[in-house]
Amino acid sequence: MSARNPGMDLDLEWVLKVRVNTQAVLKRAQQIQGGKVAKKQWQAAWLLKAVTCIDLTTLAGDDTPSNVHRLCMKATQPIRHDLLKSMDMHDKGITTAAVCVYPSRVADAVKSLKAANSSLPVASVATGFPAGQTPLKTRLEEVQMAVEDGATEIDIVINRTLALTGQWRALYDEIRQFREACGDAHMKTILAVGELGTFTNVYKASLVSMMAGSDFIKTSTGKESVNATYPVAIVMVRAIRDYCLRTGYKVGFKPAGGIRTAQESLVWLTLMKEELGDEWLSPHLFRLGASSLLADIERQIYHYVTGRYPAYHELPMA
């Protein structure tokens, strides 16, 4: 496990001189999407890798202790045991990376995982998710409550107004306070890229978030009209690369929102491998925020093992 990113003083000079070449970014994104993906057993191996990087998520208004419990059970056994056994992977401890819930459901998730003897992390969205438009005091309290209830990862949302109006110092100070409120819990900072306007703004917001001590930067809440896209991801991972070159600290990346197919998860893994290298292909530096992705991956693995696609009732619900 690499050392956590402690952050650094806000370097406004670095932030303000950023310019992103839009055409180059779009071209690179097309290359990655059009690249060849692994087939057969290699594809199955990559799909299992993707499973271990999923933050299995439920963020619905009708979440109850029972559907959170079901989510936790699915996270601890994401792929049917007999399928893993036929791939000789049943004893490799394959689970998702974490479960992600609203702050008021953290205690339920912690309780379910404890009962199942699982040390799986519980992540929680806080800070007035998804809009981030509640008062700072309330947002900080929300972080503290989630941590007190047992969340070891906090997905915070930035105040988009500050990023859109170029108030980088205020954004930095705010994220710094969230990082303090998180204590030992890892902080994933959601940029809500679909609402930031330009690639240059996305890059700047990424940089400021990392300077303020984010352990991860994340594309979206999943509630915007535009969520995780490959061009935006390229901008963010290049900011991660530049930050790592400058400071020596590795920051993780989490695309979220709209990632539903096994095929897409392979493209995301390829993007990470090509842009940041193999080290970023593990859950401590890469997460996929998803609720329905796992079902499709399990379907594809079922097909790989049996040669046919399952009927819906053959795979347990996530």
Rank of each mutant, 00 (worst) to 15 (best):
K188A: 02
R299M: 12
A109D: 03
G248V: 09
S225N: 15
V101A: 01
T219N: 04
N117E: 09
Q167M: 12
V20Y: 00
L26C: 09
E153Y: 02
V122F: 01
D242L: 02
M211P: 03
N227V: 10
T198C: 08
L83I: 11
L266T: 05
P65Y: 06
F178M: 03
K188P: 05
R4F: 13
A24T: 09
L288K: 06
R105P: 07
L196A: 01
A205C: 08
A38K: 12
G128N: 05
S104R: 11
L59D: 05
M89W: 07
P121H: 02
P231Y: 10
M317R: 14
I234D: 07
T165R: 10
L207R: 06
H69Q: 15
C100G: 04
Q33E: 13
Q30S: 13
L140M: 11
W268M: 06
G166Y: 01
E279P: 09
V237R: 01
F253P: 01
A107M: 11
G183N: 04
S291W: 06
D173G: 00
G197C: 00
D184Q: 12
T138L: 15
V305T: 06
S265Y: 00
S265L: 01
L285R: 02
Q167F: 09
D149N: 15
A115I: 06
L164H: 12
L164N: 15
V37E: 11
A185S: 06
M210Q: 08
D91A: 13
L59R: 08
N21D: 14
V237N: 02
M272D: 01
Y230F: 15
T261S: 05
G61T: 15
D108H: 09
A29M: 11
A38G: 11
V101D: 02
Q263A: 14
L281Q: 04
H284Q: 15
E314A: 06
A181E: 05
W46Q: 08
P6Q: 09
H303L: 10
V25S: 04
M73N: 14
A3L: 13
V110E: 02
V202D: 04
Q144V: 07
A192I: 06
L162F: 07
V193F: 01
K137S: 14
L56Y: 08
M272S: 03
S206I: 05
Y243D: 03
P130R: 07
E174P: 01
N21A: 04
N117M: 08
L196Y: 00
E174G: 03
T189I: 05
V25L: 02
N5A: 07
K204Y: 10
Y230E: 14
E142P: 08
S112M: 07
D55C: 08
Y312R: 14
A60N: 15
S282K: 11
R19E: 15
A228K: 04
D242Y: 02
V305R: 10
K223C: 09
Y312C: 11
A228D: 08
Q41N: 07
I156L: 13
F199E: 00
F129M: 03
A123W: 00
I217N: 04
E195H: 02
A311D: 14
T152V: 09
T229H: 06
Y302K: 09
A24Y: 10
V202M: 05
T58V: 03
A29L: 12
E174H: 00
S2H: 15
D63W: 00
E180G: 14
P130W: 10
N5Y: 12
E274P: 10
M8H: 13
D215T: 03
Q77F: 15
L162E: 07
M89N: 05
Y203L: 07
D184L: 11
A205H: 08
L164T: 13
T138N: 13
A233D: 07
L136I: 12
